[in-house]
């Protein structure tokens, strides 16, 4: 499988969506809508529930299953209000001292006149700033596409995992092809050059682990459950400050081995 085939696999409509994993992994999930500023963005699913008996905040970028739902959810590309919805829930998690579990599946943040008017850059920047100060565990799993800043806004985590066929990239292969190669058809080369597979991420130290998907949905869900369980256990017993500092140290070392 070449790199672009991996991209296509990560984007496949046949992959389970975030809601499928939430219903499999979270008991008694209660979705809470809206950002309390402007609107409710359907590209983001946020709420409360229990993970193995522990109350958690769940944040997810949701692409939708069929075409009407995908349209309604803007194919998982969140508007600023989507990120502000997650920001509100992060602050609630901090207040009530509960862990945050994130599922990431997006081609990137929404791109458009409205998104710019309402401060897409500012919304993502504020998420990154807020997440770097959180004193509760944050665990993220990239379940399909991890597209750029729009994905990072739910992945400034203490632990980041990827499903084996997920991708994580600074820019879409299409975008890279047109910027770097000046040729939109060169997506194969661009996908290869961007090094966006889970295996690449593990090698760069960008993720803690690759989760095997196996042959059916339940196996992938189990892999995510195990990752969440392990991540929470590893952070158990740390003080809020230690959790925050661990998160910063995790990112501070990335790209830091320079002369």
């Amino acid at each position: 499988m070449n790199a672009y085939q991996k991209v296509q696999l990560a984007r496949s409509n046949l992959r389970p969506d975030a809601n499928a994993y939430i219903s499999q992994l979270i008991d008694g999930f209660i979705e809470l809508h809206g950002d309390r500023r402007f609107a409710d963005d359907a590209a983001v699913v946020a709420g409360l529930g229990y993970f193995e008996g522990q109350c958690v905040t769940v944040l997810a970028l949701e692409k939708g299953v069929d075409t009407p739902e995908r349209l309604r959810r803007n194919f998982g590309s969140a508007q600023p209000e989507g990120y502000r919805k997650t920001l509100w829930h992060m602050r609630q998690a901090q207040k009530f001292r509960r862990p945050i579990l994130c599922l990431v599946d997006t081609a990137g943040a929404a791109c458009g006149i409205g998104a710019e008017e309402r401060g897409q850059g500012q919304a993502i920047a504020e998420n990154l700033f807020e997440m770097m100060g959180l004193e509760v565990p944050v665990l993220s799993v990239i379940i399909g596409e991890g597209g750029s800043g729009g994905a990072l806004a739910l992945a400034c985590a203490n632990r980041v995992y990827m499903l084996e066929n997920a991708i994580y990239s600074v820019l879409s292969p299409e975008g890279a092809a047109s910027i770097i190669y000046k040729d939109a058809d060169k997506v194969d080369e661009a996908s290869e050059a961007l090094k966006l597979s889970a295996q690449d991420m593990l090698r760069f130290g960008v993720i803690e682990g690759i989760l095997q998907e196996g042959s059916q949905f339940e196996l992938a869900a189990d892999a995510i459950r195990n990752a969440f369980r392990k991540g929470l256990k590893q952070l158990q017993g740390l003080s809020g400050e230690q959790i925050r500092d661990q998160r910063y140290a995790r990112f501070a070392k990335l790209g830091g081995n320079l002369r």
Binding site: L128, G149, I179, L194, M201, F251, A252, G255
Partner: peptide
């Protein structure tokens, strides 16, 4: 972010945000 450094560039957004936050 500098595309030629791929995911490492994306990670700098988080890293600098952490330093700004501190």
């Amino acid at each position: 972010a500098r595309v030629q450094e791929g995911i490492i560039s994306l990670m700098q957004m988080a890293k600098v945000s952490g330093a700004v936050r501190r």
